[in-house]
């Protein structure tokens, strides 16, 4: 192929996903033209073996660092290797590989620094109420803030690979606020997501976890709220893409 083609890396954080990881890897691999790396966040099941069997690059974390830090490891690698964009995909099969192209299009076209694959319908009522509250507090206007299905361009990768982004416990509020503060353009594309097969949500698995998440996110949202833009960045469309 001629030079000038954009190089992309698919980053898949995985924790005990032996049920679906094989299928996810096969699907993403079928897309073609993208490198893949699985970040194994301290899995105790057969996840790692399944990844190795498919000859896919795997970064084993020495201890559990959390989903966001796992993705960030992939971003740091991408920054080092000079990838043009990174696609983050969940290992539980909720994200459809065929939608990757939909997400990369705005980024490759230079219309956005980050594209979020949004599926607002998937949440329970409680989750939707949480979203409304968090969005109001943090000043974010994305439709689906907890979606892990995203494409990041070089600028976004650079910003999120920094140590400033390290202690964000979750990938939503903190990351999106940081992007907003850096004046990076975040767009959204509507996608379908599959039902989670087996297993409860990693985030909302208990009331305690939910309370912690809400408290944490509210505090983060208020403190990291980006200042109101006085002048919009030159030549960029700041609106949502739906």
């Amino acid at each position: 192929m001629t030079g000038g083609r954009m190089r992309g890396l698919v980053v898949i954080p995985a924790f005990n996903e032996e049920n679906m990881i094989g299928r996810v890897l096969d699907e993403v691999g079928a897309c073609g033209g993208l490198d893949i790396v699985v970040i194994d966040d301290g899995s105790t099941d057969a996840t790692r073996r399944l990844v190795r069997e498919r000859n896919v690059l795997c970064f084993p974390m020495p201890f559990q660092v959390g989903a966001w830090a796992a993705v960030q490891a992939g971003l740091r690698y991408a920054k080092r290797e000079g990838y043009d964009f990174v696609v983050s995909v969940d290992a539980d099969g909720q994200h459809r590989a065929e939608d990757i192209e939909l997400l990369t299009a705005p980024v490759l076209a230079g219309e956005a620094d980050v594209t979020i694959g949004a599926c607002p319908e998937r949440g329970s009522r409680l989750r939707k109420i949480a979203w409304v509250l968090l969005k109001a507090l943090s000043g974010l206007d994305s439709a689906d803030i907890t979606s892990g299905f995203r494409v990041y361009n070089r600028h976004a990768v650079e910003a999120l690979a920094s140590s400033e982004a390290n202690l964000l416990q979750y990938q939503d509020i903190g990351v999106l606020c940081l992007l907003q503060t850096q004046r990076l353009v975040v767009g959204e594309v509507a996608v379908q997501m599959r039902e989670r097969t087996g297993g409860k949500s990693k985030l909302f698995y208990s009331w305690r976890a939910v309370s912690f998440y809400m408290l944490y996110s509210m505090l983060l949202g208020i403190s990291k709220r980006a200042p109101k833009k006085l002048n919009p960045p030159q030549g960029r469309d700041n609106g949502k893409i739906m």
Binding site: P60, P62, Q72
Partner: peptide, 21 residues
């Protein structure tokens, strides 16, 4: 310290993964 530790863990994971490959 937590930041340092986490970034160290990330680097270690990356290095081990590349070695394995």
């Amino acid at each position: 310290n937590e930041i340092k530790l986490q970034r160290l863990a990330q680097r270690l994971g990356i290095v081990e993964g590349e070695m394995e490959r």
